[in-house]
Amino acid sequence: MKKKIRLIVNGEEKVLTIDVQQTLLEVLREDLGLTGTKKGCNQGECGACTVLLEGKPVSSCSLLAVKADGKAVTTIEGLAKGGQLHPIQQAFNEKGAIQCGFCSPGMILVTKSLLEQNPNPTTAEIKEAIAGNICRCTGYVQIIEAIRSLVP
């Protein structure tokens, strides 16, 4: 079954006709070519597919695209504006928070949402915020440091 949906992806309106069984992850990666959103487990257990839905981080593999109809989606491609990196991207790179990079888009988006809601998080709050995002490379130490470096 096909359905026409409208997504605001990184501020741009996209009208698409999709199969209703497509997940938001599949629509982003396959229909819109936004491969910065990664598929790590496809069952909501790793956070690699994190995007912001109306500003809140969600596992896009666990959400039917039809349920995002009419909503704003931010992917990693939407962060750097006009060739200018987002400060979170900058901090992640400087602090060694990126190794293989596969979890990085999700981690960075979760961080964005965290800092918008709570500009001054404690280390415990940082750990809680990223507790749905698995990283095998860094042991989380430098990711936590990168986020802390953004706290005034």
Partner: peptide, 9 residues
């Protein structure tokens, strides 16, 4: 419940 990424859904 679950993880932060699931609690918003």
């Amino acid at each position: 419940v679950g993880s932060p990424l699931l609690r918003s859904l």
